[in-house]
Design a protein around this nucleic acid. Structure first.
Lengths: 191, 191
DNA sequence: TAGATTTCTTACCATAGGGTTATTTTATTC
DNA sequence: GAATAAAATAACCCTATGGTAAGAAATCTA
């Protein structure tokens, strides 16, 4: 929780009272590998701030194939934001891919914090702006790069994530099959 | 401008003073088809709110091929948000694909509005949240749908845009070539 | 309305990546 | 450290999409 407070303090000045409120609405949790924190089809009540380990969010298509939307490591937030922001049922599943430590927030209570402590608005606006940028970049990469180029960029951008996660999750994030990724890795190794 | 004010009023209560400020920092503009509003490599000073017509933002890859990131029609915002939020030079180009009417904002001045009139924070947070949702959905669609499925969904979601834009821009948004889109259209017509 | 330009379609072949299944390698677990 | 499970690679052939080039259709313009 200290990490999160520090992160917030980097961006805005946080009153004592607001800080206490954060403690009230959150709960530090230890998660073991393979736990499902949010499950497709259910109501989404929680948002998670990761302090250790790695999680991912994914959807499952008609053929049962999984598609990874996001990985989350230390200092990242993860949830089903489609569901939260649209007030819908979850279309995503959030699962831990290693043992993790997270700070769990009740999404509704977290949302009320903007009314109670408006100083959070600009913190959150900043987060959202950066989120939009990274999503724009991801879409552009998907449009213009080949699979090997996307894989190289992924390794460069998120070297830590490779340590945590099996390749087939990376493949499902890049939009290719595990077999294609394997081929790409073989080609890479030749050089 | 009235449309925009109305849109804002739907979301937050806007003081007289704040409304006047909006007028001060904006300028209504008539744009003719094919104008470049933001150009790759240059500083991005403007953000546009569209009141009529259609524009798009795109990047150009090493082979000179264009990739459409976004279309914008009535009531949408468009700019190079990667550049604005990261304070970088433009990697995108914004071009009108029909004659348009837009409201032009100086991006910096627009950004200062949150300090001057904090009521805008929650308006903008809302916009950004919805933007994140639509980007998440787009990424998931790109990962799990075939090209014909993506095209169908596009027509369903944005029927207006098809009226405004040549097919090869739609193709470049869907991540396929104009020839592939043509094939898909032929298949569709058979059914 | 003729000519020029832009957009769309078609046809060809090339290729990246997919699906299936088998095998090898690496991690777990007892 | 043997047994099991999980992950990665490999080899097969298949298909969707790409690239190129040409022609047809639509749109613009003088």
């Amino acid at each position: 929780m200290k990490e999160l407070i520090k992160k917030i303090r980097n961006s805005i000045s946080l009153s004592q009272e607001a800080e206490e409120c954060l403690y009230t609405i959150s709960r530090e949790k230890v998660i073991s590998k393979g736990e499902i924190l949010i499950c497709e089809g259910q109501t989404v009540k929680k948002t998670f701030f990761v302090t250790d380990g790695c999680l991912r969010s994914f959807c499952t298509d008609n053929n049962g194939k999984e598609h990874t939307l996001q990985f989350a490591i230390k200092d990242w937030w993860i949830s089903d934001f489609i569901a939260i922001y649209n007030n819908e049922l979850a279309t995503l599943t959030v699962e831990s891919i290693t043992d993790c430590k997270v700070i769990e927030f009740n999404a509704k209570e977290l949302d009320e914090i903007y009314t109670l402590y408006p100083e959070f608005e600009s913190f959150q606006r900043n987060n959202l702006e950066r989120h939009v940028v990274s999503l724009h970049k991801r879409i552009l990469n998907q449009l213009q790069l080949t699979a090997p180029e996307r894989y190289d960029l992924f390794l460069k951008q998120y070297p830590e994530i490779e340590q945590y996660t099996p390749n087939y999750h990376i493949a499902s994030y890049l939009g290719i099959t595990q077999q294609s990724l394997s081929r790409i890795r073989v080609e890479r190794a030749k050089k």
